[in-house]
Write a protein that binds this DNA or RNA. Structure first.
Lengths: 232, 232
DNA sequence: CGTTGAATTGAGACGAATCAACGGAGGTGG
DNA sequence: CCACCTCCGTTGATTCGTCTCAATTCAACG
């Protein structure tokens, strides 16, 4: 809720703002606000005016939208250093919701756009990130449209393991806590809760993973799991 | 295959190059090459080095990729004035193939990037277009993952009708020629040829459309068809 | 007139959704 | 401390939609 110094920011080296000039960074810093969001709270609602943008400092968020009959879809996840918001857009085409407790650094959109105007480096970095996001979205289209439930879930688990990195490793296994509920995984993969659950237990009985309880996950055989993920 | 004057270009007002300065436009014009591609020919292959980019002058192209087992997916279509290529990318993540005879204006990627460096306006326009493409890709994710075959096809037909605009209108009806085969429509919507065909005849027997033959399509009741497309 | 490729149509199989019941974890209040 | 509740996840039985396989029609063309 309060202004903070960029120099002490956890993501100053990797977030979009790393490309700002000293002067512009100072200017933005003056109007930036750090805000915290509780797990489950929504930062921006689909259809709202896109009035802020900024960077994720800590936590994980989801981008999602839903049809009027309740069918939901999660378009992707945001991790620390990722950019949030829709510059130059009228309204948000999706909602942004915190999956874990989150810490964001937000600017008024108009002010951010003003600074962008004079800062080619940032605009360039934003362009590259947007292009990367587009490639990712397209890759996901193939998975959603053509993948089986097994491929979808295997792909998701591999991604989560790669993201979590070496949270806790013992021998070949990797342990991590999934930031999504079964229902959210289903919304991300275009499946139902039941199918997600069934595939999980299927992987478990095949000895590929373990489910110690809660949202904990242990990947026992990454190679085979990866092989069951979608073939490129 | 030969250099051409921008001043006589059909899409000079709407393509990306419309944002270039006179000087840069002249510089690019000197290295630009107009190339024609026959219907069915591939402009860029997935996995190839991304060595050129440019603009669509005429015709329609598809962006597609496929898994090693043959499952295909079309990510989207390119129309005149759309940008083609992947600046700053190593290799193409998808193939670009002409659906109709096409006319493209291409530059070597490196030269294009050099000009981009000094031309904020173009970079800004490219950013906006990329963001728009991202929003479109995300909207399509919802359709692919959650839509029924009926919704998918209705949505596709509405889009095609809107694109074709007033090609030929008689009363309430709109007539157009689909630039895609049944198989390509299937690849775009994540369906099979048979399901596409069945839904087509279903719409036809409901009096919403007519199929005079070939790839011709007449939309008789746009309102009802739109209602059967995916709910926002 | 036969050939070729695309589109249509039909019959059956399969995968995921749906409907429904159950079990465990965490919280609340008596 | 225990009964109760709710939320979430698991599991089972069944249904439904789409894929698959197969045959037929149709249009274009030599």
């Amino acid at each position: 809720m309060s202004p903070v110094e960029c120099s002490t920011c956890d993501v100053q080296g990797t977030a979009l703002c790393s490309a700002f000039s000293e002067a512009d960074r100072a200017a933005l810093n003056a109007i930036s606000r750090h805000k915290t969001y509780e797990k489950g709270s929504t930062v921006m609602w689909a259809g709202d005016e896109a009035i802020v943008c900024g960077s994720v400092i800590s936590g994980i968020l989801k981008l999602s939208a839903s049809a009027s009959d309740g069918r939901k879809q999660i378009f992707g996840l945001l991790y620390p250093a990722d950019f949030v918001g829709q510059p130059h857009a009228g309204q948000m085409p999706f909602s942004v919701t915190a999956l874990t407790d989150c810490h964001l650094c937000l600017y008024p959109r108009a002010a951010f756009e003003d600074v962008l105007e004079n800062n080619i480096a940032v605009e360039r970095l934003l362009l590259r990130r947007t292009m990367a996001a587009l490639d990712e979205a397209r890759a996901r289209m193939l998975l959603l449209a053509r993948g089986t439930s097994e491929e979808k879930l295997a792909c998701f688990l591999i991604e989560m393991a790669d993201r979590a990195g070496g949270t806790t490793t013992t021998g070949q296994s990797v342990m991590l806590e999934l930031p999504l509920s079964r229902g959210q995984i289903a919304d991300l993969l275009g499946l139902t809760i039941e199918t997600v659950s069934r595939q999980m237990t299927h992987f478990k009985s095949d000895g590929l993973i373990d489910l110690p309880g809660g949202r904990m996950l242990i990947i026992r055989n990454r190679a085979v799991l990866k092989a069951r993920a979608m073939l490129d």
